[in-house]
Amino acid sequence: MPRNTMAASSGAYLPSLRAFLVGRITFLVMAGIMVIGAFRVMDAAAETEWSDDELASAVRQGTAQLDGSSFVGELGAGDGDAGATGPGSASDATTIEDVVREHSGGEAPPSGVSAEPVEPHTAADARYTVTASGTEATFCISVRQRRSKADDYQGVGVAGGQSSVTLPGHRLAATSHTGPC
Rank of each mutant, 00 (worst) to 15 (best):
M1T: 11
P2Y: 04
R3S: 13
M6K: 07
A8R: 15
S9I: 13
L17K: 07
F20V: 06
V22Y: 08
T26P: 00
V29Q: 12
M30G: 15
A31N: 11
V35H: 06
A38H: 09
F39W: 12
V41R: 14
M42S: 15
D43Y: 05
A45C: 09
E47V: 02
D52N: 08
E54V: 00
S57V: 01
A58Y: 02
V59F: 02
Q61A: 15
G62H: 05
A64H: 10
A64V: 08
L66Y: 07
S69D: 15
S69H: 09
V72R: 14
E74W: 01
G80A: 13
D81R: 05
A84R: 05
A84N: 02
G86I: 04
G88D: 07
A90I: 07
A93K: 03
A93M: 01
T94G: 05
T95D: 06
E102K: 10
E107Y: 06
S111L: 09
G112D: 06
S114R: 11
V118L: 03
E119S: 12
P120A: 07
H121P: 00
A126I: 04
R127G: 09
Y128N: 08
V130E: 06
A132C: 10
G134K: 11
T135K: 11
T138P: 00
C140L: 10
I141C: 03
D151G: 00
V156N: 11
V156Q: 15
G157D: 13
V158A: 15
S163Q: 10
S164Q: 14
V165E: 11
T166K: 08
L167T: 09
A174W: 01
T175D: 15
